[in-house]
């Protein structure tokens, strides 16, 4: 266990509503993240994929302690993040960065780009001169003239670059990218993904790359974890996962990635796995395997007991009774 980051049994539950008069009523529980363990090595990119509302953003925030977990631990560089407070937590945050989805909400509209990028340096009492922010802006592909301007003067893709500059200026060892390209035009997405890939190669930062489709993740990830209703249902090397997806949910997600050639399309149509309906509510998670309500190959056992995440092939873990377990 010498990975950079180790999450063990992470759980995040929310109590919804006031529970009636004087809080005496029963308060429904929203299980956003419901028992996730994963690890990320230094310099590695883990792609995290799942539908909206499956808890992937919550998981990302738990890993960098933007949210306190209900249960479980996050071990980052040998330190239990969940037990840190005050100065030691601040110190740990130095080594972690985050890039958000919404390029419009992620930048303070009243600050210049330079002030935004410089802020992490100021927080940690570091030298925050013009040269340093200018160098960072250049690394993310923004002109030096951007420094004195305000976020509203930039396009979505450029704003995302500003956010990336802010996240990387302290040279973190771990970066959470929470759907960094989902809100961008397709034409701009590739630029941001390539930039992240470049920077990662240059800086050696480990990344959790969150996305809701497998297409984007494929380019950038070393390993991919698929999340469904607060759980990781499959986790594997990128190559393995795309070539031989095991979990029916992963198979359906891969089938949903649009094919580029007519031949590929026909081939895919033949063996397409369809998943109907919507993701169930995180406030009423199905018993047994949480995917059985939508699973095309559900068996009686799936309704009864919850399949554990088991390593079925080297480097490939699946939570599904199709493979024994």
């Amino acid at each position: 266990m010498n990975s950079l980051l180790d999450a063990q049994g992470l759980v995040k539950h929310y109590q919804i509503g006031g529970g009636g008069l004087f809080g005496l009523g029963e308060r429904p529980l929203l299980k956003a993240v419901d028992g996730v363990s994963l690890s990320i090595d230094a310099g590695e990119t883990l792609g995290l994929v799942g539908e909206s509302g499956c808890g992937k953003s919550t998981l990302g925030r738990l890993l960098i302690r933007l949210l306190p977990p209900t249960a479980g631990r996050v071990i980052f560089e040998g330190q239990d993040l969940t037990s840190l407070h005050g100065a030691s937590l601040k110190q740990a945050r130095r080594a972690m960065g985050v890039v958000f989805q919404d390029p419009f909400g992620a930048l303070d509209p009243r600050m210049t780009v330079e002030a935004i990028v410089r802020e992490p340096l100021l927080i940690h009492g570091e030298r925050a001169d013009r040269g340093r922010t200018a160098a960072m802006l250049e690394q993310v592909g923004l002109p030096a003239s951007a420094a004195a301007r305000y976020p509203h003067e930039f396009s979505g893709g450029q704003r995302q670059r500003i956010g990336i500059a802010r996240a990387l200026i302290l040279q973190p060892r771990f970066l959470v990218c929470d759907e960094p390209v989902s809100a961008l035009d397709v034409s701009v997405q590739a630029g941001i993904v390539n930039l992240l890939q470049d920077l990662q190669a240059r800086l050696g930062v480990a990344m959790l790359f969150i996305a809701h489709d497998l297409g984007v993740v494929r380019h950038i990830s070393d390993r991919v974890a698929v999340m469904y209703l607060g759980r990781v249902v499959e986790q594997a090397d990128k190559r393995t996962l795309y070539a031989r997806p095991m979990h029916p949910y992963t198979q359906a997600l891969i089938a949903a990635v649009p094919a580029l050639t007519p031949v590929g399309r026909a081939e895919r149509r033949a063996k397409r796995i369809r998943v109907g309906g919507d993701i169930p509510s995180a406030m009423a998670i199905p018993s047994g395997c949480r995917f059985h309500t939508r699973c095309p190959v559900a068996m009686p056992v799936c309704r009864e007991t919850d399949p554990p995440l088991v390593e079925h092939a080297p480097g490939q873990s699946v939570a599904c009774y199709l493979y024994g377990g």
């Binding site: 925030r61 933007l66 945050r93 960065g97 958000f100 802020e119």
Partner: peptide, 11 residues
């Protein structure tokens, strides 16, 4: 999110 970003940076 810009407040969250500041929290994440250790503010």
């Amino acid at each position: 999110e810009y407040v969250q970003a500041a929290v994440a940076a250790g503010a």
